[in-house]
Write a protein that binds this DNA or RNA. Structure first.
Length: 427
RNA sequence: UCCCCGAUAGCUCAAUCGGCAGAGCGAGUGGCUGUUAACCAUUAGGUUGUAGGUUCGAGUCCUACUCGGGGAGCCA
């Protein structure tokens, strides 16, 4: 028996476990809002229905104490759900100490220090439920298309992309690094299995302090042998449509709790606009943004660009100089990389990054040298080009950024149960 | 790494020109037979982040540090 399905038991005697989320008293009648993770229901404690001890208890039991309630489910228009529990008995499982989080406002620092308790709030439980639906939906999307799920290692021998700072850890008598992407391993798996996806954590030691950055976050990264850039873009579009659709269908109560304007999500249907980097620069210039061809798009530019559209926008064909070494060059313009980013609406920034991979051994070797990367640790990656290299493409979607956008919350730190941020490693 | 802002009761915040340390919530007590962040009354609760400095006098001004928040770069 859970609060979530208690409406199936109207008129019945029930027994239920939960925590005291709130209570109020009014002379000879007392109310307890009982929470069990599936929902919240009002328990009504009347003096003529319970023992004096239970009646007293209902007025003083500390918030978040755990209890076992027996009673009867009754219709009552005065309850916000339309029904409530008329209590026969309350057993205290564990009386809570004074609970630090009240119903009034708290600051971010205080809430983050109490993240393990903050998770119990209606807002945070709504976010975690939507996250659960989103990750299940994304995996189902790939599973149903015949992709094979594989896991990439967390501990890696070197900094491969070279651009981002990695977390260094001791690995017996040498150093190792926490992975910044499963992609290179995903490429190896795609050469074995055709279409694969990696779902796992990612670590970036960049000292970023913004609402879009965590030091530990989760990505889902598909990689497809024999696919090229346009097909990868179509796949990314299908993925976003699928997760938005599933969240809209399965999480309407949670979106309401978060006060998300779902009319903006209902617009999210294929096709999404596709612009090249060069076209994006033109759009930005027309909007009066001071930017020249060749510069990377910063946060302000991404926001300005996404404001021009009512749904996510793909930006493709970036200058290869500002993209990673493994990006394939555009055969019709060697200055360009066959890269794609997906910018979310409403200023949430880049939620997908990817592209077509360089399959030529010679080109890749040149690129590694030009980027000043150590070649020896990448030899296994070059082997993928030595033994039956094929065109292939893939991308990574950041779970937290996608979730922040879909739920409309301001900061990615609330999209994961225990966020890891610059200067915040606990709880 | 850089720029901006902040730190006062358990929490959220106030304190006018540098002049008695305040309120709401939470906690305790009392009241109320339908409350919806209940309400009413009442009690307790303070080394004003740390270390110096200016001053008759510092929560308030100055310096340094610590911690936190927002943003940039980088990225998902």
């Amino acid at each position: 028996m859970t609060i979530g399905n208690i409406n199936l038991n109207l008129g019945n005697a029930i027994k239920i476990f939960g925590w005291v989320a709130n209570r109020r008293s009014s002379g000879k009648i007392r109310f307890i809002q009982l929470r069990d993770g599936t929902g919240v229901i009002q328990c009504v404690v009347m003096a003529d229905r319970v023992t004096p001890e239970v009646f007293e208890l209902a007025d003083h039991i500390p918030y978040e104490s755990s209890v076992f309630v027996t009673g009867q489910v009754q219709k009552d228009p005065r309850s916000s759900l339309g029904f409530e529990i008329a209590v026969d008995n309350i057993e205290v499982i564990s009386e809570a100490l004074p609970y630090p989080i009240s119903n009034k406002d708290h600051g971010v620092a205080f809430l983050m220090d109490h993240r393990h308790l903050w998770l119990r709030s209606s807002r945070q439980t709504a976010l975690m439920k939507i996250r659960s639906v989103l990750t299940r939906s994304a995996r189902a999307f790939f599973d149903e298309l015949g992709f094979v799920s594989i896991e990439a290692p967390i501990l890696t021998p070197t900094a491969c992309e070279g651009t981002t700072s990695l977390f260094e850890v001791a690995y017996f008598d040498r150093s190792a690094y926490l992975t910044q992407s499963g992609q290179l391993y995903g490429e190896a798996a795609a050469m074995a299995l055709g279409k694969i996806y990696v779902y796992g954590p990612t670590f970036r030691a960049e000292k970023s302090k913004t609402r879009r950055h965590l030091t530990e976050f989760w990505m889902i990264e598909p990689e497809m042998a024999f696919w090229e850039l346009p097909e990868a873009i179509d796949l990314a579009e299908g993925l976003i449509c699928r997760i938005v659709w599933d969240v809209l269908n399965e999480c309407s109560a949670q979106l309401k709790t978060l006060e998300r304007d779902i009319t903006k999500l209902e617009l999210i249907k294929a096709p999404f606009p596709r612009v090249t980097y060069t076209e994006a620069i033109d759009i930005l210039k027309q909007k009066g943004v001071d930017i020249e061809w060749g510069a990377d798009l910063g946060a302000d530019e991404e926001s300005a660009l996404s404001e021009a559209f009512d749904r996510p926008v793909f930006v493709t064909h970036y200058p290869s100089d500002i993209k990673a070494f493994y990006m394939k060059r555009d055969s019709s313009d060697s200055r360009l990389a066959l890269a794609v980013d997906l910018l979310a609406p409403e200023g949430y920034g880049e939620i997908i990054g990817g592209g077509q991979r360089e399959e030529s051994l010679e080109a890749l070797e040149q690129r590694i040298e030009k980027h000043g990367l150590p070649k020896e640790p990448l030899e296994w990656y070059l082997d993928l080009r030595r033994y039956g290299s094929v065109p292939h493409a893939g991308f990574g979607m950041g779970i937290e950024r996608a979730l922040a956008w879909i739920t409309g919350i301001h900061h990615v730190r609330e999209t994961i149960a225990f966020p890891r941020l610059l200067d915040r490693l606990s709880p």
